[in-house]
Simulated assay, not measured.
Amino acid sequence: METGRRAFLLGQSPSRARTLPQPFRPPWAVAEAEFLDLCSRCGDCVAACPTGLLSPGSGNYPEADFLAGYCNFCADCARACKPLALNPRRQERPWQLLAHMGEDCLPRQGVLCRSCEERCEVGAIRFSPRLGGPALPWVDSLQCNGCGACVADCPTRAIRLAPPSSSPLQGN
């Protein structure tokens, strides 16, 4: 199903649908248009996810909800996907996402917090000391795998996952 037709069936105008952000699909999802064509919305990938990351989203298509879980890259969802809408054989990396720190980050407000660093198993979130306030976080994009474990642990929801910028070190 093409995106315009999907938007129409969801009661959205095609022009509005183009401006809406695409949902985060499960890891190893093929390109969005192909994903919508292949995915049968059976829910097998959602049931197979051991961390609770996947849930039925708009139109019952599976989406990754980083406030509910994180990805441990076990590939159980991909193994459960019979129509191959999730296909690790076609893509080496499960997705191109990195953690980005927003302005609501507590250390940026002068409050000591390191919950994201403590949760990051690969050590991609680091803190740089500064005079007159708590150390500030930065993300090493060469280390960050986009698992999203830091997102739910952030007390102010200041962390978002997004495609990487051109810089290997994210100061924000």
Rank of each mutant, 00 (worst) to 15 (best):
M101S: 07
F66K: 09
S166F: 14
L38Q: 06
R130E: 10
G4D: 12
Y61N: 06
R114S: 02
V151H: 13
C74V: 05
D140V: 04
S40R: 15
P62G: 07
R90S: 04
Q96D: 15
R126E: 11
R93E: 15
C120T: 01
C74I: 03
C113T: 00
C154G: 12
S141D: 04
R41Y: 11
G57S: 02
T19D: 07
G57H: 09
G52Y: 05
L84I: 01
C144R: 03
L67S: 14
V111Q: 09
L161A: 00
V122I: 07
A48R: 07
P56V: 08
V139N: 14
N60L: 03
G43C: 08
C77P: 04
C74L: 13
A85F: 08
S40L: 15
S55Q: 12
R108H: 06
G52M: 09
Y70R: 05
P155N: 07
E92L: 12
D76C: 04
L84K: 12
G148T: 02
G110K: 10
P168C: 14
S115Y: 01
S15K: 06
D76A: 11
G133S: 08
S58R: 02
I125F: 10
T3N: 05
Y70V: 00
D153E: 12
P88Q: 15
P23R: 10
C147E: 05
G148E: 13
G110S: 09
G69M: 07
K82W: 05
S40T: 15
N87R: 00
P134W: 07
R108D: 09
L53I: 10
P164G: 15
A99D: 08
P107F: 12
L38D: 09
